[in-house]
């Protein structure tokens, strides 16, 4: 099953469960407080997924390592290499 199909299956499953519950298709008598939460649930989920995505990406951007040391080390090794290779007769 492709990743796309997995997503569609999961969405269809969740969507139909939600629809069945809100529309009372199963003949269940849910207490009104439950129904009040259930009705806007997809919107809540969407918003919290968005918040999670923004938060995660923001945190990861903020904590992205800047490898200053690696860059400095590389620069000094390039100098070393240039000297060594010139001694061995390389024409740059």
């Amino acid at each position: 099953m492709t990743k796309l199909a997995q997503w569609l299956w999961a969405l269809a499953l969740l969507g139909s469960t939600w629809a069945a519950l809100t529309m009372g298709a199963l003949g269940l008598e849910l207490p009104s407080s439950c129904r009040e939460v259930l009705w806007p649930l997809p919107a809540y989920l969407l918003v919290s997924a968005g918040c999670y995505a923004l938060g995660t990406v923001g945190y990861r951007v903020a904590t992205f390592h800047d490898c200053e040391d690696a860059a400095r080390e590389l620069q000094s090794q390039i100098q070393e290499a240039r000297a060594d290779l010139t001694r061995r007769g390389l024409r740059f």
């Binding site: 990743k3 990406v57 990861r60 951007v61 992205f64 390592h65 200053e68």
Partner: peptide, 25 residues
């Protein structure tokens, strides 16, 4: 300890967003 050097904020954001979406999908 992985990381990058020489990327501006825009590049970091694009990279993280692309990686995030890829991981999810």
């Amino acid at each position: 300890n992985g990381g990058v050097y020489g990327w501006d904020l825009k590049r970091k954001i694009i990279s993280r967003v692309a990686n995030f979406i890829t991981q999810i999908l």
